[in-house]
Simulated scan of single mutants.
Amino acid sequence: MHLLISTLVNYLMILMAMAFFTLLERKILGYIQIRKGPNKIGLAGLPVPFADAIKLFTKELSFPSSSNLLPFTYTPILGLSLALLFWSLYPFSSALYFPLYGALLFLCISSLNVYILLYAGWSSNSKYALLGAIRSIAQTISYEVSMALILLSTLISLFAFNLVSIASNQMSSTSFILPPLFIIWFISSLAETNRTPFDLSEGETELVSGFNVEFSAGSFALIFMAEYTNILTMSLFTSIFFFGSIPFILFTDISLVIKTMFFAFLFIWVRGTLPRMRYDKLMNLAWKTFLPLSLSIMIISMSMMILI
């Protein structure tokens, strides 16, 4: 019972964090573009996320007549469920349960996100949605290969799979030992979460919103929530894997939260700064640059560990 309550509170808190992260993004993008963000509703626009949620979930939910109804209905729910499942791995100090191989479980769960894109495009039974899903799947798989190799290199250098031990006992930051790994990881995280300059999964000018073009109202809201939850997830795991605890300073939940907020801010900063990449350049970056570089770094890391 205590584990169930702890899990439910954990999920509720991340949903609240995701809601206010959307408000933070709109505020920061407003100042980047020299304009005001949302500020009309309540105090400084704070109730805006709740107003958006009420608006989306009270709209009429439409189903295309030719869609595959069952997967079309449950795909957004499954997408948000996977996004929340990541937060079962959150290594806070008062958790009741810690997965022993949390880093490997992170890889397993992240690989399932491809199926959400596939089912969303296929179940819509629309050519535009299917083309958008195929393009999104190609992008996600391409960058997942590099991300897996980067993570393996990091785990080899850390000698651990338990996220709690990685976050609390890491005596030196991996980002300072292997800076190219951190740079490739962060860029791949942008591609994995479909963020600028890699937001080609939802390129409005080319695909009219891509794989989710047929989703509306509550279904679209669930996909939207899953996307922003994944941004916070990647910020969290970037903090754990590449910016561990500082020597002689005990690991605290507050320091992890601050680092996660910093990387979430970087996601917004990149969106307000960089233009969208061309698709062929995006794929070339994954297969001709990141893959050879991450493979080379992994071989070097393994060689160093063997010699040591």
Score class of each variant (00 low, 15 high):
residue 273 T to C: 11
residue 250 L to E: 14
residue 284 N to P: 00
residue 256 L to T: 08
residue 244 G to S: 03
residue 281 K to H: 14
residue 254 I to D: 05
residue 248 F to E: 08
residue 285 L to D: 07
residue 254 I to E: 09
residue 280 D to R: 00
residue 277 M to K: 04
residue 242 F to Y: 11
residue 267 F to M: 09
residue 249 I to P: 01
residue 243 F to M: 05
residue 246 I to W: 08
residue 278 R to Y: 07
residue 282 L to S: 06
residue 261 M to D: 02
residue 272 G to E: 07
residue 269 W to D: 00
residue 244 G to L: 00
residue 279 Y to A: 01
residue 260 T to C: 15
residue 267 F to C: 03
residue 277 M to L: 15
residue 256 L to G: 06
residue 254 I to W: 13
residue 285 L to M: 15
residue 273 T to V: 14
residue 267 F to H: 08
residue 277 M to N: 11
residue 253 D to Y: 05
residue 245 S to A: 11
residue 257 V to S: 12
residue 286 A to N: 12
residue 285 L to H: 09
residue 280 D to I: 00
residue 268 I to F: 05
residue 265 F to K: 00
residue 275 P to K: 15
residue 282 L to A: 10
residue 255 S to H: 09
residue 244 G to M: 00
residue 255 S to D: 13
residue 267 F to N: 04
residue 280 D to K: 00
residue 252 T to A: 06
residue 251 F to C: 02
residue 288 K to P: 02
residue 270 V to T: 12
residue 265 F to M: 06
residue 257 V to H: 02
residue 287 W to Y: 15
residue 249 I to A: 10
residue 266 L to V: 14
residue 285 L to T: 11
residue 276 R to D: 05
residue 282 L to W: 02
residue 271 R to Q: 15
residue 279 Y to K: 01
residue 284 N to D: 14
residue 262 F to G: 06
residue 251 F to H: 05
residue 273 T to R: 11
residue 275 P to V: 15
residue 266 L to Q: 02
residue 250 L to I: 08
residue 265 F to G: 05
